[in-house]
Design a protein around this nucleic acid. Structure first.
Lengths: 341, 341
DNA sequence: CTGAAAGCGCTAACAT
DNA sequence: ATGTTAGCGCTTTCAG
């Protein structure tokens, strides 16, 4: 509030200062239509001198155009989502569109509120994490009248377009790799999942595939809140005490996996001979661990890029844009998921 | 673009559907002014049935009021900033205001662009990281006509209000603690700092204080990009090879510090007898490390809260709000900064 | 308690 | 190449 007195400048102020009509000033400032070099000069000088900042609210109302893309994600603390955002920003960089972020904290009611608030600004498109939404949210998305891309997950029924990986498949692939490597007594650790549908789907794909080989999860443990690394340690200790003969631990994310890894190394367990480990997400952090944790890349950056690409294409009027983009995560065995013995 | 045909609904549509004047519909939807329970009912029913989403663009233009607070930060990848954001969101939760985030990637030109773009939406306030801005940016902030809070840092000259810690003091305090603990041969590792003013100020405070005790940094190493944990390892290895008799390593952030810690433990160094370590930021991650790294809390969450508090107070017309809030980071010695011998 | 009229600051569509 | 006119969808203000 440095200068609370000064009313924000309007086009009119620039018009008067430059002696050019408002309309022409508007043209110059938007690089629209033909304007002589001379007037253009005058206007730009005046605008800069006054420190004019256009009022997009008025502009948007008049033109019925908003260059904002609503991006709705569960959390910023997860690192996964900032990376998706980077992908989006990158792709939007050279367009007129720009992302605006809303956070839901994994709460459907909050998602509903955030969505409503963002839609009330009439964005040019919506990118939203997940395929599970309340009825009200789905209705809003369906009625929005702009492109909607649901991201991260493809196991479900998108309102419009979707870009992501199959988490069920990811769980299945991991199970297959673990069985293939000869592990049999498997423990699972993850977040309490009622609202983390993707973690839940991975778990489902995982257990189902094990079941097909006649294997049942030997132990499991869930957490919420706190330092993931520390939780990974704690849960691993708890579980190994409870079920000492486990020969593999599957973690629903890399951070708790890293905690488990550190714990087991300190306990003197031989990895991966004695016990194997795997996480999920391929976070950068893993590169600095004493041993490379097995993981699976969730294609975070590509998801963001592809989603943004779809929004841009649709925004430009292309109707024939692909509607579902299924990305394939790659298994990175690292040094903790290797044929047993 | 699920239903590209349907033009977004307007107040008028709700008005017609409910048989109530636009004005009264507007009143109901905003809970403003007195409306009889009966009409209120009718209107709400109609609005919900139609799936009406108010147009904030029109509303903002008419009322000259926008409930958005621009929050401009260098990066989302740093974890520091999401935490500041949480503090802001938390504080704004029960007000009519809501944060909108812009990211600068530590680039002054991008900051200028982001600021310009955000100001063109006429936000109710601005929270922006750092005290160093281009002349153009400072001018925009000064002219914005809304409260501006510069955060993270207080060593400098705020445009309006500011909330943060003194990074010079933080560097000094760490130096004092290290000297006090008896370490003398000190190495420093950090990011290449031309644009990270806060890291630079910590470094300055640190070296200056050492100098006063006649100590000079014995070795230093800088990095950019890549996995911070891995970089911490690499740099530490490089430095210990080059200068084997170092007895303390000060890292400009906890992630590289953690990498260094893991590396040194693997190398069989006794910590903190043999060599001491410290980072900066008190990130949650540290809780899961095999040994608790010394660090200093940057008061991230409080900074966000306080900044938001100032915006809210000013927004409500309080002119007498404190202008500079200096928070005091606490040194957490952990297990890696303890009296030598 | 409810309604009618007059803009908010800009741009689309038409002049000139 | 430049200017004029009429709104965009809502809220403010003032009348009932």
């Amino acid at each position: 509030m440095t200068d609370p007195s000064k009313r924000p400048l309007t086009l009119r102020d620039v018009s008067e200062a430059s002696g050019v009509s408002e309309m022409t000033v508007s043209r110059v400032l938007r690089n629209k239509g033909d304007v002589s070099a001379a007037t253009r000069e005058k206007v730009q000088e005046a605008a800069k001198r006054l420190g004019y900042v256009p009022n997009k609210i008025a502009g948007a109302l008049a033109s019925q155009r908003v260059n904002l893309v609503a991006v709705i994600i569960p959390s910023l603390g997860n690192m996964v989502f900032p990376e998706v955002l980077s992908g989006i920003s990158e792709m939007l960089e050279n367009t007129e569109l720009q992302p605006v972020v809303g956070v839901t904290d994994y709460l459907p009611e909050k998602e509903e509120k955030v969505l409503f608030d963002m839609l009330s600004w009439r964005p040019a498109g919506v990118i939203i994490a997940g395929l599970e939404h309340s009825d009200a949210s789905r209705a809003m998305l369906a009625q929005a009248g702009v492109p909607v891309v649901e991201i991260m997950d493809i196991d479900g029924d998108p309102v419009d377009a979707c870009v992501g990986i199959s988490h069920r498949r990811a769980g299945r692939k991991m199970a297959e790799a673990i069985i293939e490597a000869g592990y049999r007594k498997i423990g699972f650790m993850g977040t309490k999942m009622p609202l983390d549908h993707r973690a839940r789907k991975r778990f489902e794909g995982f257990t189902r595939t094990l079941a097909q080989s006649g294997i049942e999860i030997a132990d499991q443990e869930f957490y919420s809140g706190g330092s993931a690394l520390a939780k990974g340690r704690e849960m691993t200790e708890t579980m190994m005490d409870r079920t000492p003969d486990l020969d593999f631990l599957y973690y629903s994310n890399d951070m708790i996996g890293a905690g488990g890894l550190l714990y087991l190394m300190e306990s003197g367990r031989k990895i991966p001979e004695d016990i194997g480990l795997a996480g999920f997400n391929a976070v950068e952090l893993l590169e600095g661990l004493p041993q490379q944790l097995a993981t699976m890349d969730a294609c975070r950056s590509e998801i963001g890029q592809k989603a943004a690409e779809i929004i841009v294409a649709r925004h430009q009027g292309q109707a024939d844009v692909e509607n579902t983009v299924s990305l394939r995560p790659t298994l990175q065995p690292g040094e903790t998921l290797i044929r047993k013995k």
